[in-house]
Amino acid sequence: MAEAPEETVVHDELKFANDSKMTARDVSVYYGAKKAVDRVSIDVDSHFVTAFIGPSGCGKSTFLRCFNRMNDTIDIARVEGDIQLDGENIYDTRMDVVQLRARVGMVFQKPNPFPKSIYENIAYGPRIHGIADSKSDMDRIVETSLTRAGLWNEVKDRLDESGTALSGGQQQRLCIARAIAVDPEVILMDEPCSALDPIATAKVEELIDELRGRYAIVIVTHNMQQAARVSQRTAFFHLGNLVEYGPTEEIFTNPRADRTRDYITGRFG
């Protein structure tokens, strides 16, 4: 019989929050027979950036990918439990996964612009979802998305150039603009700065702060300083379990679980 995980420590301030955009209850993820995530329950607030932290291989990225069903693309992956977006079960057989991924966008660890022009990188999503009714509508969406991503002034005179010709930091902001273009409700970011230099990282962090409140944002990061800078909620994962979830300042200054304290103070990780 499988050993039950230790109960997650949820700080009181979050236990009674009622503005959750997404909720997960008893979510487990398997790769074949291997359990990568073990009965995780968490709420994602509409107005805050939530950071998932923890050592490599602890399940935080696997869990993140559950929120827009990216694990569906892995043949041996299986997800159990309940995840809801605005009260709707995203794993219901009637859920349109394409529409779900428009509502819950994803920005990956390595920038992955399409081998198309900067303009077409942004226009692709709105075009396939039928969001723009005219060329002028599409132009507006492209400009608005690039502006929100802090990239418009850098690329407005070269929209016909390939997105892959941009610097790494610009490519990542282009990918964020691409996610924004379909007007999502949630943005998932899987270590979005791990391949970037410090200057580009600072720009992406500034962008995350500017986007907060417009979208529910969840970020996976190995960089605890980054989590402390950009998030207002932090969830600490270890060995596939959610150990502790609370306000970021509390997690970093007054963690309640011994494993969280040991990780924050560098005793392991």
Rank of each mutant, 00 (worst) to 15 (best):
P5Y: 06
T8I: 07
V9R: 09
V10T: 07
L14M: 06
K15T: 12
A17L: 11
T23M: 14
A24Q: 08
Y30C: 00
G32M: 08
G32F: 09
A36I: 06
V37K: 02
V37T: 08
D43S: 15
V44F: 10
H47M: 13
F48K: 15
F48Q: 12
A51N: 03
I53W: 02
G59I: 06
C66S: 08
R69H: 05
T73R: 10
D75M: 10
D75T: 13
I76A: 12
V79C: 10
I83Y: 01
L85P: 00
G87D: 02
N89S: 12
I90H: 01
A102N: 13
V104L: 07
M106Q: 05
Q109I: 11
P111E: 06
P113I: 05
P115I: 08
K116M: 15
I122W: 02
R127G: 12
I128C: 09
H129P: 00
I131A: 06
D133P: 00
K135A: 14
K135T: 11
D137F: 06
M138F: 02
R140L: 13
I141L: 06
T147A: 11
A149Q: 01
L151C: 05
A165G: 09
R173H: 07
L174M: 04
I180T: 02
D183Q: 12
D183N: 14
E185Q: 13
V186T: 05
D190I: 04
D190Y: 08
E191M: 08
P192M: 09
P198V: 11
A200M: 11
A200Y: 05
A202V: 09
K203M: 10
D209E: 15
L211F: 03
Y215W: 13
V220W: 03
R229D: 08
V230T: 10
Q232K: 11
T234H: 00
F237S: 04
L239R: 14
L239T: 10
L239Y: 13
L242W: 01
E244M: 04
G246N: 01
E250H: 03
D262W: 11
D262V: 06
T265C: 11
T265R: 11
